[in-house]
Amino acid sequence: MDAVTYPQPPVVATVVAHAVPVQFDNSKAENKELLSRLHHIWTPDLRVMDGSGSELYRWDGFLPPPEFIARALCGFAQAHLRRREFEKAEAIYVDVLTRFSTTYAAPEALYYLGVTRYRRDPQSDELLSQWANLRSRYPTSEYRVKQSFKELP
């Protein structure tokens, strides 16, 4: 990550726009207690936390720059969504779908765009509307399966 992904200016811009970055070396004894508390098992191990230290999103494994940006944006969007900051979450999901529509994170963005709009306004038809878009745009994704109960006869 330090050699390929993190040096890229768009990656830096994405991270600093939404978060304070903090990094820990898992080979150092001084980090052992913290990593035990985080139930750390594999690297790179990424967590999105709010200012109180509550973990709101996580992923692990190497991702090249476009995939990392899209995944990180989905993380920040879900962190906003869990805090019921619907407008902020929606803006980020739309950004992922606009700029990173071919990434592995994009189906998640479309799934949760529907959830975000539904949570903001339960009377709207945005949940089913966005999930219909999901079936059309990402028919083989895991997130299509997650809404597949809506496809039952």
């Binding site: 978060a19 903090v22 070396d25 191990d45 967590r47 999105v48 936390m49």
Partner: peptide
């Protein structure tokens, strides 16, 4: 390059001050 902090409590405090999240990255130097 990303300017990483290395103190979680200090990062959480800064996040509260700047109304941002904290992005934690645990890495292995090998």
């Amino acid at each position: 390059m990303i300017e990483w902090m290395h103190d979680l409590d200090a990062a959480l405090k800064r996040a509260r001050e700047e109304s941002k999240f904290v992005l934690v990255d645990v890495f292995n130097p090998g």
